[in-house]
Design a binder for these strands. Structure first.
Lengths: 328, 328
DNA sequence: GGCCACTGATTAATCGTTTCACCAAAGAGG
DNA sequence: CCTCTTTGGTGAAACGATTAATCAGTGGCC
């Protein structure tokens, strides 16, 4: 391994001068600087990040704590953060908290121990972890008081809701996966807002809710709005099992525009997060925090409606009494 | 930040002794060692990884280069590697090569620059990157001469093939996504082996192959074997569009047992990789390499058949002439 | 000529930890 | 009593980079 000393000796100058020439900080004559850079290049010199970190107190590495890498959305966040970090010359150390809150705090400690400059965290459902004295940004949703940036889950829900209302549906079922999730709560709330007061809304959760779907459809529901694409896919299977066709008998929507949303049949109407914008903003704030800035307001990145084949106008039947009842 | 010096001063011993007591390396009386540890604990002391890395030349951090984090399989590998690394007290720095071979080598360089002790790489389709003088393990498939460990894609294909043959199918279509992929090539080969010489096999690739599926079914094919679950899902949609039922008219299989495989309707017959075993082995080899061991043979971890509802016996029709023709 | 400002480079300290060589004290053995 | 070994601990030199302080020249200007 070529060190700064090596170069200094080769050229016949002091180590300090080499450092100055390479970082462009001190005062070095142009001609000498070029000779030094050439020699560094020739030797394949790479500054020792350990030495630099020791001296400057900055490692140039950020930590990333993810709740569960197997959820297809998180890797996308990870990927975009990694892109945004690379653009700033930073590295990303990942830690997977694997579903447990205990591992989450432990992962945070690990990262601190490894000397990261700051942390991006996507919290476990319903938790708000804290790292003492470490710059940290949180990607969650508006409901979380510590949230730094996230997709506008409420707005996204509203888009879906308005889309479904616009198609003429008057009786819908909201399908959630886990009540504990702040994100899903916000999506639910947004969907309810988007549907407005004139639509009859029922809410079901989890596997029990999934199993109850055919019954609700039997009772007049014409659309099912799930809080995630995976849930929508499961719903689609459940409906197919019950001989209910999508979108013929009932419309169906998801959330997140996961890779399989287009491969499904029918292709799934959903909303997409601008993960890249979220990652970019998260890193902007985090680098600011590291530089000593104050914590900014929580920021929401708008979601985008992706209408596909799984939603259409409700089937023409005898009008449901529940619907008319609720009209003003 | 509490340093080793701090502790030394507090207790009234030299820094060397503190280091010895904490790492258990030198000779320190039991009683003193305990006092030192207690003080360290009280101060919340965390050794500076930078200083340690500088002195020892080992960072305790491994690099991980992934071809594309959006493919749902890779995050699972990442997660399992991260678990295996954590168990060894190592950290994982990720780098996403985002589909391009240029970025792949660049990512490798970046990791080297950050002082990683070794690298795990899942190569871009059809590439075999090299990092000069850096311990490195490759997770790909048997076809890659540099492969260190991987799922037994050939064996997995054979499982699927035998399963389908066992159900009585005599005319199948093999559906691949990308000819360049070593992994898919091996899966194809395995499936052909498992099906044996008595079965009529046709092979199609990519979107064109996908579009041609209904035609092949019309010509008597009773099973479609895809090289990935995502491809199988796309095939299912394509078939549904053509009014072909699975598994009624044609059986369908995937590969990898991705999360949505159970949520599909019908649930997908597929094969699962033992990602955890792969990750464990990869890290075992890599730590060995770092310690100076020689590069071991390429190792294949068996895959597991996951039979679900998407495969069944072929429909009873007039026997296809192609089939009988090929019987002995 | 004397003083000042500026340029270009050097010196030396420092970051926190590890590690090797050395040393004092104490008991063992002859 | 002298030497030897063992135990428990210290000193000091690294590791490779950064950086504040310093210094030698060199003109400029009155």
């Amino acid at each position: 391994m070529a060190s700064i000393k090596q170069i200094a000796q080769d050229i016949g100058v002091s180590a300090a001068t080499v450092s100055n020439a390479l970082t462009g900080k001190g005062r070095v004559s142009k001609e000498l600087a070029e000779r030094i850079q050439a020699r560094a290049e020739a030797l394949g010199y790479r500054p020792s990040s350990a030495a630099r970190a020791l001296k400057t107190g900055q490692s140039g590495i950020l930590g990333l704590v993810m709740p569960d890498l197997t959820n297809p959305l998180f890797p996308r966040i990870a990927q975009n953060l990694s892109i945004a970090a690379e653009a700033r010359g930073l590295g990303i150390l990942i830690a997977d908290s694997r579903g447990s809150e205990a591992r989450q705090t432990e992962a945070l400690q690990q990262l601190v121990g490894r000397g990261v400059d700051g942390v991006v965290i996507v919290p476990q459902k319903g938790t708000s972890p804290e790292a003492p004295g470490l710059p940290m940004v949180t990607i969650n949703t508006a409901r979380d008081p510590r949230n730094t940036v996230s997709a506008d889950h409420i707005g996204g829900g509203a888009l879906i809701g308005a889309h479904v209302r616009g198609l003429g549906h008057g009786h819908v079922v909201l399908l959630g996966g886990d009540r504990v999730s702040d994100v899903q709560q916000d999506r639910m709330r947004g969907m309810a807002e988007g549907l407005g007061p004139s639509v009859l809304i029922e809410t079901v959760w989890g596997d029990a809710g999934l199993a109850a779907l055919p019954k609700h459809v039997g009772q007049g529901a014409t659309a099912i709005l799930a809080t995630s694409d995976l849930l929508a896919l499961a719903a689609l299977s459940e409906l197919a099992r019950g001989g209910i066709s999508v979108p013929g008998d009932v419309s169906l929507t998801g959330f997140d525009d996961l890779p399989f949303a287009t491969a499904m049949h029918p292709a799934l109407t959903t909303t997409a997060q601008d993960v890249s914008a979220i990652a970019e903003h998260a890193l902007k704030v985090l680098t600011g925090l590291i530089a000593g800035a104050a914590r900014p307001e929580s920021h929401a990145v708008p979601m985008r409606l992706v209408p596909r084949a799984s939603t259409t106008a409700p089937p023409i039947t005898t009008q449901t009494p529940t619907n008319t009842e609720r009209l003003p």
